[in-house]
């Protein structure tokens, strides 16, 4: 069942009963945990995006990597970022919370830089990356998700 990851997540009391009571530990309503509350929905969306980006990157790298190495490598990089964030949210430790924060900032910078470049000059990043046109192919979720994620991380930390 859900709690195979570690003993710290036996419920909403995470952080209180476990050793690592950090500034982030132990919200009353599970606020500090990144796999409870709204974080539970974030995990789902990130997991879907992770699978989508991994499969896209795998397809691109396996079949046509030589055509455009840079954007396809970028797709792979984005896929790794999504996988790391998904794992970090589920792991739900103070360390993984920091990893998730860094991952979301990387994701946000990536989607903004690649998105802007692709809008300004389509030849730099042809239609191939998850972050093309701010993630238009993915209903702009790649742009919205890191913002929502960072808001969630900030709020859930402030709940203590």
């Amino acid at each position: 069942m859900p709690d195979h990851t570690d003993s710290a997540d036996a419920g909403d009391l995470s952080g209180i009963e476990s050793g690592h009571v950090e500034p982030t530990g132990g919200g009353l309503r599970g606020g500090a945990s990144t796999k409870h509350g709204a974080g539970r929905v974030l995990v789902v969306v990130y997991a879907v995006l992770a699978v989508a980006s991994v499969s896209r990157a795998a397809y691109e790298l396996l079949t046509k990597f030589s055509v455009a190495p840079v954007p396809y490598s970028l797709s792979a990089f984005a896929a790794v970022v999504y996988c790391v964030i998904t794992w970090a949210l589920i792991a739900s430790t103070p360390t993984s919370r920091r990893i998730a924060t860094v991952g979301m900032i990387v994701e946000l910078v990536g989607v903004l830089v690649v998105g802007t470049l692709s809008v300004v000059d389509g030849s730099v990043f042809p239609k191939s990356s998850v972050w093309f046109w701010y993630g238009r192919d993915y209903l702009f979720i790649p742009l919205l998700l890191p913002i929502l994620g960072l808001v969630f991380l900030r709020r859930s930390r402030a709940e203590n």
């Binding site: 859900p2 709690d3 509350g37 974080g39 539970r40 929905v41 789902v44």
Partner: peptide
């Protein structure tokens, strides 16, 4: 399964996703 592990509104939110 993931939503069943969450008692509040977010359990429903997960399935809505």
């Amino acid at each position: 399964w993931w939503g069943a592990g969450e008692p509040g509104r977010w359990g429903s939110g997960v399935v809505a996703m």
